[in-house]
Design a protein around this nucleic acid. Structure first.
Length: 216
DNA sequence: TGCCAGGCCGGGT
DNA sequence: ACCCGGCATGGC
């Protein structure tokens, strides 16, 4: 919470996820896998321009056409298949309705999403939090690097451990988890980059100097 | 200009 | 059970 406040004070509200619909969140979550968000925006624009940002339309779209449209995100061949896997799941199992999936509850929906090839932990959790509004904390490369660099976690810490760390120390509030993750990304983009081992301007700078051990 | 981005899978130890 | 190469474009 301390960290959250520091980040919020510095960066302000992030207004995530940048999308018009829950389905757009899901598409963005898949396309942003190890990709620059600006490239993802371009790909989503391509889909919107042709009015294809819809589960049934992507379901019917040819793989080749889909591949062309999402090219800017990189890894377009695998991502096109992943999108296809996702919409196939959604259309054939839930009539294309995300709400039907989400009505199963957080952990059942999470299990279902994991069964889709190409959706890993971060992608699934992003869908659950930002499209489903479920209180699940997302861990990503920024989260890991920021915590590790400020000596809050050792190198070998896993996704599940980091997620548990947040979820055991914070109220399960989707609004809080939403903002917190977005703030960590903002911090990571601006300060805790791979270069620059020490981030003097980082609003979390105080953490490793004052030997904070816990996340509260 | 080279390194990196809001990961994930599959094959090899 | 880990470890690592492959996937690939555009930003800065």
């Amino acid at each position: 919470m301390e960290i959250y406040k520091s980040l919020y004070t510095y960066f302000g509200p992030q207004n995530w996820w940048p999308a018009d619909t829950p389905f757009e969140v899901c598409v963005g979550a898949i396309l942003t896998q190890n990709a620059n968000w600006k490239n993802v925006k371009r790909a989503i624009e391509n889909l919107k321009k042709e009015n294809l940002l819809d589960p049934f339309k992507i379901y019917k779209l040819s793989l080749e056409k889909l591949t062309q449209l999402i090219k800017p995100t990189g890894f377009y061949n695998v991502k096109a298949k992943r999108l296809k896997n996702f919409v196939k799941f959604l259309v054939e199992k839930y009539q294309g309705e995300l709400d039907a999936l989400f009505s199963k509850g957080l952990y059942e929906a999470r299990k279902e999403l994991f069964s889709i090839k190409g959706l890993g932990k971060e992608t699934v959790d992003s869908i659950l939090l930002y499209a489903g509004n479920f209180p699940i904390f997302i861990v990503d490369a920024y989260t890991y690097r920021i915590l590790n660099r400020h000596l809050l976690i050792p190198e070998e810490t896993t996704y599940d451990e980091i997620q548990a760390l947040f979820m055991e120390n914070l109220p399960h509030d989707p609004k809080l988890f939403n903002e917190f993750h977005a703030l960590l990304v903002a911090c990571g983009k601006n300060f805790c980059k791979k270069k620059e081992p020490l981030c003097n301007l980082c609003p979390l700078n105080y953490l490793h100097t004052t030997k904070h051990v816990i996340l509260e």
